[in-house]
Nucleic acid binder design. Structure first.
Lengths: 203, 203
DNA sequence: CTGAAACATGAATCATTTGTCATATTGAGC
DNA sequence: GCTCAATATGACAAATGATTCATGTTTCAG
């Protein structure tokens, strides 16, 4: 067992308010710098400069650049789920919940593109975290669909396949209509997608 | 105007069979090395070792690591489109073509995960190439949908939104069912997706 | 055959950055 | 107001890996 009293673990939780603030400052700076320039191009120097601290201070709170990155992915993962849970909480039925969820997701992406970029980049930088993010998400999604099916709110079908399909569609629509194009009519996008999803493409 | 006769452009086309072979060897090695370990982790040394050539030789054919990468993205882009065009060529109607297209795409991804990884990583390594890839793809996709709509093969709707939605869904299904899980029942996945897309989720 | 262009080599260069460390400073609890 | 753990500093050692280059070898048109 490591002796935390003599050899303090790097990246142990801060013990004072001051420490907490510094750690937060690093995370926020990392979100901006990594989110804007990408993981590879972002240097620790960039991050600490933006955070207004010395380079060495970084290593008091994180073992490596990789570690902040993972922390940011986790943060984004939690945040997105919380946001969507909130947004869909009092929907009358599943399809309405899905619609509101997609709308909220697009708004979220437009609001914090940096965090979105970080999750996307996690695919190559921290594949396990990336995969965990989507898998967790998909699980909840599928559960909702199964429940909806039981209630007769959607036609029967493979909930897992559907969940992944719906996530995928949300992801790329976010990229296309909330990041690349910054003034798209998101309500129109959602309407169109749900016209397709609810009633199908067949004439 | 640069004088190509005295200062040969690096990355000019090879002029002999031998040169062509070497260039191809580099591309194939780069596909494997970058596709498996990621752009950042892949070193020129790794690539040239795998290609069986000296490090300096690399720079006869490519200006930088970035340049091979872009070339690979382009290659993948062309290849995927050709493959899908072929796979959907003699479909009786649009929805059948879409179905066959998705099935073929999943098979393609399962077959060459390295190339797929490269396109995904392009999002951060070569954003313009990444975007060009999807935009080109979406354009063709949307045209097909517009035509199908005219023929009365699909219900009217915003073809661009639909095109992106369908692409997004294919992308993440590829990741989930062709890369992460290597023995998924791809026909089942396609059936389920098309049940949803054709007839809709509403009971 | 032959010479010039094309191609190939790999050691050396060079720029970049990570992560460390010896040395301050801060502030909470006594 | 002292003391010690926590926090902060910034210069620097060490590694890394992309790119260059001076020199050799191969190819092929004439």
């Amino acid at each position: 067992m490591p002796d935390a009293s003599t050899s303090r673990q790097p990246s142990a939780r801060p013990r004072t308010r001051r420490g907490q603030d510094t750690r937060d400052a690093i995370l926020r700076a990392a979100e901006v710098v990594i989110g804007e320039t990408g993981f590879a191009a972002a240097s620790i120097a960039d991050i600490t400069r933006k955070a207004g601290i010395a380079q060495g201070t970084f290593y008091i709170y994180f073992q490596s650049k990789d570690e902040v990155f993972r922390e940011l992915v986790l943060e984004m993962s939690r945040l997105t789920r919380a946001f969507l849970t909130e947004a869909t909480a009092d929907a009358p039925d599943r399809l309405t919940a899905e619609r509101r969820g997609l709308r909220a997701f697009l708004a979220f992406v437009a609001e914090r593109p940096a965090l979105y970029n970080i999750v996307m980049e996690a695919r190559s930088v921290a594949p396990d975290a990336y995969r965990a993010h989507y898998t967790t998400f998909a699980k909840g999604y599928a559960q909702n669909l199964v429940a909806a099916e039981r209630e007769g709110e959607v036609r029967p079908g493979d909930a897992e396949v559907r969940a992944w399909a719906l996530m995928g569609l949300a992801v790329i629509l976010g990229e296309r209509f909330a990041i690349w194009e910054t003034d798209a009519d998101l309500d129109h996008v959602v309407d169109q997608v749900f016209d397709m999803l609810e009633r199908g493409l067949k004439p």
